[in-house]
Design a protein around this nucleic acid. Structure first.
Lengths: 250, 250
DNA sequence: TCCATCCTTTGGACTAGTTCAGTGAGTTCA
DNA sequence: TGAACTCACTGAACTAGTCCAAAGGATGGA
């Protein structure tokens, strides 16, 4: 029994020890390297047999390890060991691919959808639009080491970016802004919010709708202090760590 | 039936509609103002009777609303409606009380514990200490509108702050640094990580150990580019929204 | 070789209960 | 008056199952 390493506020009854033990065993195997990143755990049914507890208790224990950021699940596929978090500075405007590569990880981007619409209210608000304005909405899915970790919606005010939808949109938009439209980002404003995954995001990231994600809303200004686009990022919460240093902006 | 407003990827079976309905009803009552911030929801048993579903389904539905940031729970006390999030800029070094007051909310701080110890490894790492160094650890609990939302651990390198433990430590430490020790914060570095609440934090915030929280680790440098302290903040995830603007630091 | 179809495995979403332990209001009693 | 005690109510943590639907591998025919 490894229960001794647990400090509980009250005296224990034997019943509750078993799921704690399962958490301990899995945690130890993950930290000890017996279970490697991206490796699949046994199925919930198998774990329930292995530890002689019900599937509900198994699910509770797994959800708890998920909150710790040690494991993650994919819809109807199973549970997997989380790779280390990437460090992300939303102010730096460094490209996703550059950032990931610098951390010895492999980045990929997949274009999900492009649409050109009149800005609905939540986009209009983020872009500080007072009248009906046409925007491009670019939805992309981003992968680290083959795992989908980030769903991004970019909303560009279309008159700033003629014909952008004809470009290769799996590359960095920042680079595209600079090379093709001569816009540099002079100012960024962003919010970080722990939230629940909306249905379309959950589907793309292959998680259950309503699961916890980290939402980042960013607004970018060009060198003329105009808002040119905004961005909604939805991160798998175990995949990322926001990291900011004030010295980089002073 | 209000089920129609839900878009589900697949056709529904009648069974699964009831917990969705419960979520809908509660959400509507919260947005509609029938349930006010800080108000207590009916007990899980009552909800289970009201909607004729089992307590496990009730718990699932409530956990889902919790992830959305609409409700929160207190250990063995019940579920409550979440007040709006406060906007927090970790770079600004504005005082907690000042920040909260500016947003028309009421702030309080409670001193939990002070200890003076030789820095254990995780603190030593954050403070970039290479040798055994004495630090003060100040644990404080912060309230908004009477609700405990933030647990803070401040670790000060003690030789920078003689006799600080004799001061009133429910006030802003930044102010204390400035007025009493002539230190101004010239640089801050911080990480934001979705994490699970450690036991001592869970106890102070009155949440279950292992529940999701937002962890912010901050390191502060004085005007001589020395690291003088670091800070570990643990926020209830529904209480806060990180909000940063690059223009404030350029 | 390719592609549709079946079939097993997986998690998702439930039902119907039980026991345990902290909270807090109300009561008792020195 | 005030501290200690009681007790109902609360969520916490379980047991023991059921049925459903998506995912993906195996199968088999054109």
């Amino acid at each position: 029994m490894t229960d001794k390493i647990w400090t509980r506020p009250t005296k224990m009854k034997s019943k509750i020890e078993i799921p704690l033990k399962m958490k301990d065993v899995l945690r130890e195997q993950i930290f000890g390297g017996s279970l490697l990143p991206l490796q699949k755990l046994p199925s919930e049914r198998d774990l329930s047999d292995l530890f002689s507890i019900t599937r509900i208790s198994v699910k509770d224990a797994l959800a708890s390890l998920e909150t710790e950021g040690l494991i993650y699940k994919e819809n109807r596929r199973g549970w997997f060991v989380s790779p280390p978090r990437v460090e992300y500075n939303p102010l730096s405007r460094s490209h996703f691919h550059q950032m990931v590569t610098e951390q010895q990880r492999i980045a990929e981007t997949q274009l999900i959808n492009i649409s050109t619409i009149m800005a609905p209210s939540h986009y209009a608000k983020a872009l500080a639009l007072t009248e009906l304005t046409e925007i491009h909405v670019i939805e992309r899915l981003r992968f680290i080491d083959g795992r989908a970790v980030l769903f991004v919606e970019n909303c560009l005010i279309s008159h700033f970016f003629p014909n952008i939808i004809l470009e290769n949109l799996t590359q960095s938009l920042t680079t595209l802004y600079q090379t093709k439209y001569d816009f540099t980002t002079s100012r960024s404003r962003f919010d970080v919010i722990p939230a629940a995954a909306p249905a379309h995001v959950a589907k793309a990231l292959n998680i259950s709708p309503g699961q916890q994600i980290l939402k980042i809303c960013r607004v970018n200004y060009n060198q003329h202090a105009q808002i040119i686009d905004c961005e909604f990022e939805y991160w798998r919460p175990d995949a990322v760590m926001i990291s900011i240093d004030s010295i980089e902006h002073s």
